[in-house]
């Protein structure tokens, strides 16, 4: 019993740590055993040759960066190598870093909620187990810190106890939750919640939805319906369609992003579960192909472990 309380207390204590430090500590714990950081790989190398480029290639592939982005980078480096532009390891590391950063710079766009848009509607979508509900729980805190009022819509009417899960988050943060019975129509729950948010003059409505694999076409149709229903109240809603992506997943996340984007027009991404050993490298391919803004990254289990995405911190954490 006592141990449990300790754990829970610990969960609530919050000391602000920089995102970079947080990512670094997450990686550091196992990094020594599992992988050598790229900077160590390059440090002290006298010769920069094809072998070293192969090592970089390996490093990026094991970070889930994927074949196409990795190949593009290696090709660029090979060209520079042949042109004798890579004199020492610092230049090489810089070249790798600036290429990867350039992919993410354009998608480094924090979620902006204009004051005149009231309520601002956020529709959260994603595959099963990606961390939608937990991300919503953390997002409430981010918004409350900005002085916004929040209302939740329990749109996951499919998974057992999903509504209860959202209600717990609501209670913890003193935020009302609009919900119906399990199995009821998700679109109608969210529609009601929107009306209720309007009536109460709430700043932000966050709608949860059931996790769905992007290959289930009927479930993707359901999402389209939710979106359509929202436009009946307000032509411009939802103002944000946030796709939650699990960083531990591999190349399939690109397919997910494509399919969800095609179905409901994703406007922002939250990349979760970066506190393990996964590096979420697929985000580069998603950024390169789809250019969808990345809003948040999830770096821990604490309520304030949802951080605003920063491209150079992300790339730095990948290496050090």
């Amino acid at each position: 019993m006592i141990k449990i309380f300790k754990r829970k207390n610990k969960t609530q204590e919050t000391e602000p740590v920089s995102v970079f430090d947080k990512l670094k500590t997450g990686l550091r714990s196992t990094r020594k055993v599992l992988t050598t950081p790229l900077s160590d790989l390059l440090l002290g190398k006298k010769t920069i040759d094809q072998d070293l480029l192969d090592e970089i290639e390996t490093y990026l592939l094991t970070a889930d960066v994927g074949v196409s982005v990795t190949e593009a980078l290696i090709q660029k480096l090979t060209k520079q190598l042949k042109a004798k532009q890579l004199n020492d390891e610092a230049v090489l590391l810089n070249s790798v870093r600036s290429y990867l950063e350039s992919l993410l710079k354009d998608v480094e766009k924090p979620l902006h909620i204009p004051a005149q848009q009231k309520p601002f509607v956020i529709l959260t979508v994603g595959v099963n187990g990606s961390g939608k509900t937990t991300t919503i729980g953390k997002m409430i805190k981010v918004l409350q810190n900005e002085g916004k009022t929040v209302l939740l819509a329990a749109g996951d009417t499919f998974r057992a106890a999903a509504i209860d899960q959202l209600k717990v988050w609501g209670e913890r943060n003193n935020v009302p939750v609009v919900a119906q019975q399990p199995g009821s129509d998700s679109a109608s729950v969210i529609y009601d919640a929107f009306n209720s948010a309007k009536a109460r003059g709430v700043d932000v409505l966050i709608a949860d939805t059931a996790g769905r694999l992007h290959t289930q076409s009927h479930l993707m149709e359901e999402l389209k319906k939710i979106k359509k229903v929202l436009t009946k109240i307000d032509e411009s809603a939802p103002h944000e369609v946030m796709l939650v992506i699990d960083a531990t997943l591999g190349q399939n996340s690109l397919q997910q992003a494509k399919q969800f984007h095609e179905a409901v027009g994703v406007t922002g991404i939250a990349l979760t579960k970066l506190d393990g050993t996964a590096k979420g490298g697929i985000i580069f391919a998603i950024a390169k192909e789809l250019g969808i803004p990345i809003r948040f990254i999830g770096v821990g289990e604490k309520v304030d472990d949802l951080r605003v995405f920063n491209a150079s911190d992300f790339v730095k954490a990948l290496f050090e």
Binding site: T30, L34, L61, T62, A63, D64, V127, G129, D246, T248, L249, G250, Q251, N252, S253, G276, T277, A278, K279, G281, I282
Partner: peptide, 11 residues
């Protein structure tokens, strides 16, 4: 999860 990436080895 069958969609897990390279991290599957570590976990």
């Amino acid at each position: 999860d069958s969609m897990t990436g390279q991290d599957a080895v570590h976990t």
